[in-house]
Design a protein around this nucleic acid. Structure first.
Lengths: 209, 209, 209, 209
DNA sequence: GATTAATCGAGACGGTACGTCTTGTCTTAGG
DNA sequence: CCTAAGACAAGACGTACCGTCTCGATTAATC
């Protein structure tokens, strides 16, 4: 007899849930994550604090779900999500195109504050971090894995290359620049990343290949 | 309405400063960053709260300085800091070696908690983030830039390659895996990164090169 | 904007009502009045909260009715209620006897907690206080008035004495000792009260009587 | 290691203490005891909640001290408090006079709400009740005991009468009428009480006296 | 016996206050 | 003047209840 029985989800107020999502996202955008409080979210959503604590264990989880919801919505708005990177036969062009879309999204102010906040919280709060990675990051990365695998089968990528590692060559640099402000983000930059990642930076081919 | 005159640093208590660094680092290691409080640091350091607020604007800044201090100490202990990546003439080998050292440091428990905490806080607290990047990250990255530039002059790296971008091909993937737990970290992994980054993942050379 | 139509009392669940009374009384006895909550009563009674709010305006009213019910029951158990103080012709003896019964009741643990709670709430919540006085206290006091009036007619009590005030001479001291713990309660004590009230404490008769 | 060390009383803010007393008394007067909250007191006093919780365990204790302070002040204002019931040699007159003063005080609106609230809380919260009785009620009652004892030595009161019980004959009825609204309060009423208590209500002297 | 309308147990809801914790400022005493 | 200590105003935390509301599921009186 340690923990409360879980609440009855069938009786949950849809209106409140949406109001909470909206309040959480707008507050994070306006005052930043650390100054966004559960009380503030409840007040702006016109909701009792208990209604938040009933369904989420912390403000980080509220924000995570709110962001997932926002992503889902944005995906729907953007037409039937392809859920795949296009395959025109030209790997470099395809990767450049999809990275340009990612750049656009990273610079969209609706996404910036909450996703940065979630990423930050995820670094320090491991369960949340795992959920963030599992639910948001990995599905995206898997698309790259799929496209690279297809390229590998088509002979465009060297056999033996681990696609899960390969994708990090262009995704991680972009992620780090964005997260840590270690450099500017642009189409040129991502195009360059694709170029370098595909053909390497060395002037000579590897000795034993 | 001017801001307070700065306190007289010549009369500052060295003992307190060191006790505060130690308390901050140990608390972050023990209870995590969010549950580390200024009061807790003051109590463990046997110091008045005002002594902290007099010299640092926030707990993040305390931790940043504490961590810088720790890094300086660790560097000294590790013998006279080379402050350069070795240049044996074999770029791949040199990069692999230095990345292996980085792996060792990332897995050192003394460093893990505070540096992860600082990275997280830096994402969301821009001034701190810039300081973190400027004082800790950039100097490290510059070493890579220098080594790559030397390789470029030696003809090992293609002319026209932007070394600042090139270094991200092996540094950022490692950073992301470590920060966001998106994958395991090992010597094999970093070796592979160097391999891919130097020679690319494509099976064919670029069309117009 | 009229108030709700009153609920249909004919369809009321007798079982629930009794369960609520029992739960209210036992909770007040166990955890005290302030920590007795409507939610707690509902939970212990196995009843929805609305079933309480449908029939009573507040927890104080629940407790008042529960206590009235308990009193009624106790009266029935104690044989056919006399509803009068016996009149043996000896006023002192009759008063002593009935006060001894009152002492017994005040010390009965079933009654103590709820009646003290009701008295307390009544001090601060005037409507409830009036109801408490009207329904519980006054009927009891009236018995004294009747007995004293009879004694007055029999010449045992001085003509001109206001019986409503006279009864307070032995009832109020007992009530105050019990309510405010200002002294112990015993048969000796109430016997003494009767003695003093009947014959006064002065050594001389009044100057002008 | 169970409880906090007590705070350092020498550094206590006198201004805050007085503001808290004033806020507590005015709130109880305006909205009644149950709707007076610690938060409300803190807000009106311009004080942090912790400053209240640091020095008092509950709102009842705040109110008790506030009331004690008010009583002390009122006593000082009323000239050098005699701290004794006058002894003119005429016991009945002296008692009537002091009871009339009590009537005045009971009807003073500054005192009514808080003292009724404290009495109520004391019924149900035994430690507070004992403190209320010890610090406020008993000192008052002792004055009666002293005056009655003097009268007894002067032969005005029958030897053998227990003065502690005797005083209740006129004090308790007044207290009960006031607390429980069981009847009106007036000079006539208290005069009558003294009359009855001194000379009894019986028409005949006791059989064995 | 089926219909129907209100009560029932249950519990989610918008709120308020609780008592605790921490922040960053201010005050006091001591060196 | 810096220091250790800690009281202070402020305000968020997460919990407990309040009194209202909305669900099916009884359930009792009418058809």
């Amino acid at each position: 007899m340690v923990s409360k029985p879980p609440p009855d989800a069938t009786r949950r107020s849809e209106k409140s849930r949406r109001a909470i999502y909206a309040a959480a996202l707008s507050l994070v955008g306006e005052v930043g994550y650390p100054r966004t409080t559960v009380e503030g979210i409840a007040a702006r959503a016109g909701v009792g604090k208990q209604t938040i604590y009933r369904w989420w264990p912390s403000k980080a989880d509220v924000l995570l779900e709110a962001f997932l919801d926002l992503s889902r919505q944005a995906a729907q708005e953007a037409g039937q999500e392809p859920y795949a990177i296009p395959d025109t036969g030209d790997l470099a062009a395809d990767l450049k195109a999809v990275l340009r879309l990612t750049v656009d999204q990273l610079l969209d102010p609706r996404f910036e504050a909450p996703s940065r906040a979630l990423a930050a919280e995820g670094l320090v709060n491991e369960p949340l971090g795992r959920e963030f990675v599992t639910k948001l990051l990995e599905p995206q990365l898997q698309l790259y894995v799929d496209r690279l695998r297809a390229a590998q089968e088509a002979g465009e990528v060297r056999a033996g290359v681990d696609c899960r590692i390969a994708l990090e060559l262009f995704v991680s640099p972009l992620a780090q620049r964005w997260l840590q402000h270690t450099g500017p983000i642009s189409y040129d930059y991502t195009d360059t990343l694709v170029e370098y990642a595909l053909h390497g930076i060395a002037s000579q081919p590897p000795r034993s290949a």
